[in-house]
């Protein structure tokens, strides 16, 4: 019979101190329009998602090892393309174009209106912020090890849980684009799922999941990034039976074909001397 050994911990405001870690979250209202304008300028983006939870974050800090893993809105938006992917248009675009073919006005300034950020978190160490693509040797290494899902299925007590939104957009009622982070801390481990989910109705569904798993007695964390995508035909039959499933992103993600899975280790020994 599997049991968990209780571990000393302290609940703090919006977080927990456990092992050598301080794990905490921040949840706030969306940015005001003036703040959004400042962000747009800073990020050099023509448009930001309608709802930007600019002051929200999830942070896992290990001061002793000088390693902090953070998921925040600004870092995610920094990785957005500056222009639109012209291969994706809303479902009514074709008909709309026919009707409006005599339209002689301009087209809106380009931006990735699907807000598909490849963000998988940032790592702070040695006073530097490594973005999702930077892989300094000694800190990040490839691995064949997998996250132990069976262990995560055990109903171990959850000491801390939170669900934090970073941004969302309703795509002018053509679907949804959303980046959110869930975290749970148990006696033996911490598990985090950051999910970018995109649904363009009748066109495409896309999901980028970043899972981070750490057993407190180990010298590394596992980071698994899964990309899933399909056109709407694959999932449409489910909605024809029950339209309410359209807004159930967990259900949709479970039906998507996996395009890639990459697992890496984040090494806590990065800053050890010699």
């Amino acid at each position: 019979m599997a049991t968990t050994t209780p571990r000393e911990h302290k609940l703090i405001q919006n977080g927990i101190e456990i092992a050598d870690w301080v794990i905490h979250t921040s949840k706030n209202p969306i940015l005001r329009s003036t703040e959004k304008e400042t962000w747009e300028q800073e990020l050099q983006l023509n448009e930001l998602p309608e709802m930007v939870y600019g002051n929200n974050f999830v942070r896992l800090s290990n001061e002793k090892r000088d390693i902090t893993i953070v998921f925040n809105c600004m870092d995610a938006l920094k990785l957005l393309d500056k222009t639109a992917d012209q291969s994706i248009k809303v479902s009514s675009a074709k008909k709309w174009e026919e009707i409006n073919k005599n339209f002689e006005g301009q087209i809106e300034k380009s931006f990735d209106w699907t807000f598909s950020s490849p963000y998988t978190g940032s790592i702070l160490s040695r006073g530097h912020c490594y973005n999702s693509f930077e892989k300094p040797s000694g800190l990040i290494e490839n691995t064949t090890e997998k996250i132990d899902i069976e262990k995560l299925k055990r109903p171990d007590p959850i000491l801390f849980f939170d669900d934090v939104l970073l941004y969302e957009d309703e795509l002018a009622d053509n679907g949804e684009s959303m980046l959110s982070v869930k975290i749970r801390v148990m006696h033996e481990s911490v598990f985090l799922l950051a999910r970018f989910f995109l649904r363009v109705d009748d066109v495409i569904v896309r999901c980028l999941d970043t899972r981070i798993y750490h057993e407190f007695n180990k010298d590394y964390l596992l980071k698994e990034v899964t990309f899933k995508e399909t056109n709407f035909d694959v999932i449409k039959p489910y909605f024809e039976k029950d339209p309410t499933l359209l807004t159930d992103s967990n259900f949709i993600v479970s039906k998507l074909p996996t395009r890639s899975i990459v697992t890496e280790k984040i090494l806590l020994t990065f800053n050890d001397q010699k």
Binding site: K89, V90, A93, W96, F103, Q106, I107, E108
Partner: peptide
């Protein structure tokens, strides 16, 4: 599409003059 659709869906744009077509394609 058409006038009935536009008046229920369109947004003002403080930065650009004229009618401007959306990046989304509709």
């Amino acid at each position: 599409e058409g006038a009935l659709s536009d008046i229920l869906w369109s947004d003002p744009d403080p930065e650009r003059d004229g009618f401007v077509e959306s990046q989304r394609g509709a």
